[in-house]
Amino acid sequence: MTDAVTASRPGQMPQRSPLKSVLLHAALIAASFAMLYPILWMLSGSLRPQDELFGSTSLIPSSLDLGGYIRGWTGLQVSFGRFFWNSFVISVLATVGNVMGCSLAAFAFARLRFGGRNFWFALMLGTLMLPYHVVLIPQYILFLELGWVNTPLPLIVPKYLATDAFFIFLMVQFFRGIPRELDEAAVMDGCSPFRIYWKIMLPLSLPVLATAAIFSFIWTWDDFFGPLIYLNDINTYTVQLGLRSFVDSTGSSDWTALFAMSNLSLVPVFLFFLFFQRLLIEGIATTGMKR
């Protein structure tokens, strides 16, 4: 517990009286429960018999019933297995693209000296502020012309072109912190810039690459707007689109199944949360990411 984010302040601990401490913990436990209650309720709701969901505020189902998961999985004309596969493929390929494309650009900005560097860097920062909606329609027209609508390509290819400038910025910050002596020594040994990038920078930057990869995966997995626009054929749907169709088709008739599929759609994000929580929290704390 030595990093800046988690380090507590031992010097301040004794200042609080035992009574105050108990009250604070009671308040925090109550607040934690209130925060998680809706999610837990959705989880328990998905495990109930279909007719029991309403009228019950409790978190314990009267009997365990996996029917919701079975009905939900095949609730649309295409099974959710397909949607999960589509989401998985898009998220993995987009993540690889983001890490590759952004780290190449970040290396140039952080380490290489070239004419126009400040100019391009300022433009790159400028694109951070530009709302996506301004480029949305022309991009749609472009991908329509290319015949890419109803394929995952519009959701994947732009990532290889480093369009998520935020990650470039994140990596530039990290690369600048790596001692220059390392690449200077490599230059003396006759290393090409590409070898320096590949053999020195990337291996030393695993924390930031992992942070970028995890956020990239989660954001792509959760993305609804992009798939909504580019994927109209149900065979190409991602999980988020599948869920949306499921809402429209079941309406409010089978909440158990809807909750079941909703829970499943959260599983990958939740796994990242469980295993990489510290990386996520440090990523937010040091860069001020919005999620």
Binding site: G101, C102, A108, L112, Y197
Partner: peptide
């Protein structure tokens, strides 16, 4: 060398950001 590293971003910047804007 630097522009080779920047190439993907430059294509994205002109083709998917500045051009469309």
């Amino acid at each position: 060398h630097a522009y080779l590293f920047l190439l993907p971003w430059l294509i994205g910047f002109f083709g998917l950001t500045l051009g469309p804007a």
